[in-house]
Simulated scan of single mutants.
Amino acid sequence: MSLKFVEVLLVLFMAALGLVHADLDCRMESVEKVLGDEETLVDFDFRLIGRERLLNGTVTVHVELDNEFEFSHEIFSHRNGEWVPSSIGVHYKTCLYMSVIYDKYFAPFLTDSNLLKGKDACPFKKGKYYLKNIEVTGSNWAHYARLGLVKSVLLIKKNDLIVGGVNCVVVLQEKGF
């Protein structure tokens, strides 16, 4: 079999499982901070505003986040009344997370924000950063997500202790429904 044929079979298999979607609507349902185990070094103070559920708030980073910190990002889907872990999840040191995940999947939303991006995001500098009227969309990351309720859990750790994080719940559905 040719490699191209195997790729086509893989895409068809993923589509049959409901893992590939064309255009999705993404609606933020909730957002809550995760406090640190012993101390909170990264404080996410967010709220959702209006019918559009726009993300507003601040991220306060109390120390410079260098590669001594790990970003653990897990995705869960809601099935039969329970949160079920998906196969989508990463555990990266700060610089790798910022360049591979954050810059590609989250920074594009940040139209009115002073959060660091690109090469400026590593190490992530100490400071207070704002987000104003941020619309979260599924256009660049939902191709592998399941429809329905999805929970995204970001934990920031140092020496296996949580030092901050954020939980977000979104509803993903096909456009037009």
Rank of each mutant, 00 (worst) to 15 (best):
V59N: 02
L48S: 03
H91V: 10
A16P: 04
E38N: 15
G18N: 09
F71P: 01
E70H: 06
F69D: 05
L35G: 14
T94S: 14
D45F: 07
F46H: 11
F44L: 05
E38C: 12
D25Y: 09
G89P: 06
V59D: 01
E68I: 11
M28Y: 05
H78T: 08
K119L: 15
T111Q: 15
E64F: 02
G18W: 01
L35M: 14
L65T: 04
M98W: 10
N56R: 02
D25T: 11
V100I: 11
E38T: 14
E82G: 05
L35Y: 15
V84Y: 04
H73Y: 15
K104P: 00
C26Q: 04
T94G: 05
C95V: 08
H78L: 11
T60F: 05
N80E: 11
G57K: 00
H78N: 13
S99H: 13
F69Y: 15
F69H: 10
I49L: 14
R51I: 14
F76P: 00
T40E: 10
T94E: 08
T60A: 11
Y105I: 03
E82W: 00
P108R: 01
T58I: 03
G81T: 00
K119G: 11
M14K: 12
Y92T: 06
H91D: 09
V61T: 08
L19Y: 11
C26W: 04
V20A: 05
V100Q: 14
E38G: 13
L17F: 13
I49Q: 13
V63S: 10
D23C: 04
E32W: 04
F13T: 12
A16V: 13
V100E: 14
N114H: 06
A16C: 14
E29I: 12
E52C: 02
K117H: 07
L115H: 01
L96F: 12
T60N: 10
E52S: 10
G118I: 13
L55Q: 00
G57F: 00
I101P: 04
G50S: 09
D25W: 07
F46R: 03
S113Q: 00
S113K: 01
E39F: 13
E64C: 11
